[in-house]
């Protein structure tokens, strides 16, 4: 009896998004990537600011007019939240790289802290902007 060797078994795949129970650490992990991608856009806005500044007062007024419009302000506020979330969650990642903070209770607490920090800092920065008359 000649029998060809069986085909390699299908490799087991790791569970994907839809089979995980929604959880704060899961949300933090996904949003770390999402906010990082948003901050890519933030750096391009920085490049646009530098280009406008180097191009003269008219270009600069155009840039600040765009950023100061209602959609511009909403976008910049969202980017502020993204920045502080990515910063706080990045510090969690640096802790994990040192082998710290993996215990479930601590991982949960630091994930919550990253969300609270992001929203509190963003609101604080924008209140400060209003107070110093920069809006």
């Amino acid at each position: 009896m000649v029998e060809s060797s069986p085909a390699p078994r299908a490799h087991p795949l790791s569970p994907h998004l839809q089979v995980w129970r929604w959880h704060i650490t899961l949300a933090a992990s996904i949003l770390h990537r999402a906010t990082g991608a948003a901050l890519y856009l933030g750096l391009l806005i920085l490049a646009g600011w530098a280009l406008a500044l180097a191009s003269g007062p008219q270009a600069y007024d155009g840039f600040t007019g765009l950023m100061g419009s209602i959609p511009g302000r909403i976008g910049l506020f969202c980017l502020t939240v993204c920045l502080f979330f990515h910063l706080a969650n990045g510090v969690r990642h640096l802790g994990w790289d040192l082998g710290r903070g993996f215990e479930p209770a601590i991982a949960n607490a630091t994930a919550w802290a990253a969300f609270v920090f992001a929203i509190a800092m963003a609101i604080g920065v924008w209140v400060l902007l209003a107070v110093i008359g920069a809006l």
Binding site: L53, L87, G90, H93, L94, A134
Partner: peptide, 24 residues
Amino acid sequence: SAVALIALAIWGVGSAAVLARGGY
């Protein structure tokens, strides 16, 4: 770069506030 950006990003936000007020 992440470690450097912790300080640079916080400084950058503060600077953006100063710049937003100062105009061209």
